[in-house]
Nucleic acid binder design. Structure first.
Lengths: 182, 182
DNA sequence: GCAAATTAATGATTTATTCAAG
DNA sequence: CTTGAATAAATCATTAATTTGC
């Protein structure tokens, strides 16, 4: 696209093929409004926002409109993804584990404010004894075994699959559909 | 306020150490996993990692959890700083560009109690008169106001008739890509 | 060379968000 | 409108690096 170093906001007048490139100030203010509860601005609001943000750079009403649309959609998508993963995990491992964690960090509710109350209340700490644990984790095993002559426990090096731990301690291994790859 | 005298114990030996001190092997393997794409391990994965890293030294599930949380957060933070710096360079904020931009991004403000005047019905045609428009969203006005009166270059702020934007009509408006984030 | 003092990294907690379910 | 679930951001706290004076 013949990118001539145009001063950032490449809103070329005319036939206009360029996209809006928000400035940091614009993004900051938009995010602030979004967090403040404005999820779907009305046309009037969009006009006001546009006029106010135009002092930071070129901007149009449709940019604002699309920004809110995209931002909301992205938020929802992200959350849905998480919930899906969680639900899947819950189905597969109803017994224990499954929480993606932060809840486990709330040991006690009443005393947590007063004192640093040392933290041995972690559920995760009670690791199930490592008997079947270290049998099937392709990538993990692969990553954990190089560079040391010690070879932890499991010495099997799978080809190249990038799936993480499909395993459960007692059940057969169905993958829990991980989602770490952005 | 005043710190309690730390028990000071050998973290890796036994007893209640102050905090986890990862061994170089542990750090190396954790970083390798992170770089391989594992950003938020599930509880099961954390257990796996913990049990495998425990051969290099004392470690608990919460340590692994915290490690990934912190690592991810600080990665994001670093990246954001870089991007912010770059954008600032481009924009050449002359007045006071060296105040921590992060503070501006802090969501410390609690204007969120204001009700979102959501209005999905945005027909541009029947816009109400502008007079009442300005009144029903003090929140937006407040947020959009310049914090220090910096107003870089463009100072035109017409609060009146503004450019309209296409609605879902015959127009195409297919240029709403997302690039304001990341 | 060595510790006390100071600064930078990083482990561990707390707080503020988000969307959706009830 | 309130609450549930789960962070990610912000912050607190402690360890490691380093500087400094002797």
């Amino acid at each position: 696209m013949t990118s001539v170093p145009v001063p950032v906001n490449t809103s070329r007048s005319g036939g206009g093929g360029s996209r809006w490139c928000p400035t940091p100030e614009q993004v900051m203010l938009l995010e602030r409004m979004y967090r403040s509860g404005l999820k779907t601005p009305s046309a009037t609001q969009i006009q006001q926002i546009t006029s106010r943000l135009s002092i930071y750079g070129k901007i149009q009403g449709k940019n604002v409109f699309y920004w809110f649309q995209n931002h909301k959609a992205r938020d929802r998508q992200k959350l849905r993804k998480k919930l899906m993963a969680l639900h899947h995990q819950n189905r597969l491992h109803p017994a224990h584990d499954h929480h993606p964690f932060q809840t486990l960090l709330h040991p006690v509710e009443d005393v947590s404010k007063c004192k640093p109350m040392i933290n041995n209340n972690w559920k995760i700490d009670d690791l199930p004894s490592d008997q079947t644990l270290m049998c099937d984790c392709p990538l993990m095993t692969m990553m954990l075994m190089d560079h040391q002559g010690t070879t932890p426990y499991c010495t099997r090096v799978p080809p190249k699959t990038l799936q993480l731990f499909p395993l459960t301690t007692t059940h057969d291994l169905k993958q829990e559909d991980d989602h770490f790859n952005t």
